[in-house]
Computed example of a mutant assay.
Amino acid sequence: MDSSKLKKEFTLTQWFQVLSILAALMIIIDFIIPGKVYTDPILNIKKERQQYYNAAGNSHSSYKVFTEREDFNVSGSFAKQIKDVEKITYSISPLFNEVNYYSLIDSEKRNVYSLRLVSGLALPLITILILLLAIRYKKRVEILSFVFQVLIIADFIYLLL
C-alpha cells in the first residue's frame, strides 16, 4: 500500500475521532447547562401503550405531558404524581431545545427522562472514554471506537431533529 494513501486514511480516521469527541462534548455541555426554566400549566397527560410484536407479546406504557410551550415524555411514576398538580417546572437545553429536567411546582426533586439521560450524558461520556482508549490502544479497540463514533453522530443528528 502506498504510504501517502495510508497517511491520508489515518488523518481521515483522526478527523472523524475529533469530530466525534466534539459532538460528544457539545451534547454533554447541552445536558449540563440548565437553559431556560419554564413553569407552565399542564394541559394534558397522555398515556400510550407501546406493544412489542414478538413471541412474548410484551408491552409497556409511556407518558407524555403537554404544556403551553412543550410536550415531552415523563416517567410513569412522575405521571402518577401529577394528577393533583396544575403546573410543572421544566428546563429547556440551550443548544438542542430538549427538556433536560422536569419537576412538580412544589417539589425540589428534579426528574430526568431516561432517554435524555442516556442520550445526553451516558452515551457521550462512554464515547469519549472509548475514543481516548482508542488513542492508547489503536488496533485493539478500532471496531468498538468506530461503532461509538457512529452512535454519537447518530445521537447528535437525533438531537438536532
Results as ranks from 00 to 15, higher is better:
F16Q: 03
F16C: 09
V18H: 00
V18P: 01
S20A: 15
I21L: 04
L22Y: 01
L22T: 05
L25D: 09
L25F: 05
M26K: 01
I27Q: 06
I27D: 10
I29K: 01
I29R: 01
F31E: 01
F31H: 06
F31W: 04
I32S: 01
I32C: 08
I33F: 07
I33N: 07
I33S: 10
P34H: 06
P34D: 14
G35L: 07
T39Q: 14
T39F: 00
T39K: 13
D40H: 05
D40M: 04
I42G: 02
N44W: 08
I45T: 15
I45N: 14
K47Y: 08
K47A: 13
Q51H: 14
Y52R: 13
Y52L: 10
Y53C: 07
Y53H: 12
A55Y: 04
A56P: 01
G57L: 05
N58Y: 03
H60E: 15
S62L: 09
S62T: 14
S62W: 00
Y63R: 08
F66L: 11
E68W: 00
E68M: 12
E68A: 14
R69H: 12
E70T: 04
D71M: 12
D71Q: 15
F72M: 07
S75M: 09
S77I: 00
A79D: 08
I82A: 10
K83D: 13
V85I: 14
V85S: 15
E86M: 02
I88W: 04
I88E: 02
S93N: 11
L95I: 14
L95K: 05
N97I: 00
N97H: 15
N97Y: 13
N97E: 11
N97P: 03
V99K: 11
N100I: 07
N100S: 14
Y102H: 12
E108C: 01
K109G: 03
K109W: 02
R110G: 02
R110C: 05
R110K: 15
S114Q: 10
S114D: 02
L115I: 12
L117N: 06
V118C: 07
V118M: 07
S119M: 11
S119Q: 12
S119N: 10
A122E: 08
P124R: 04
L125R: 05
I128P: 11
I128F: 04
I130F: 00
L131H: 09
L132I: 07
I135A: 03
I135Q: 03
R136L: 07
K138L: 10
K138Q: 12
R140G: 07
V141R: 04
E142K: 15
I143R: 11
I143Q: 13
L144Q: 06
F146H: 06
F146R: 06
V147H: 05
F148I: 01
Q149S: 13
V150D: 05
I152K: 00
I152C: 04
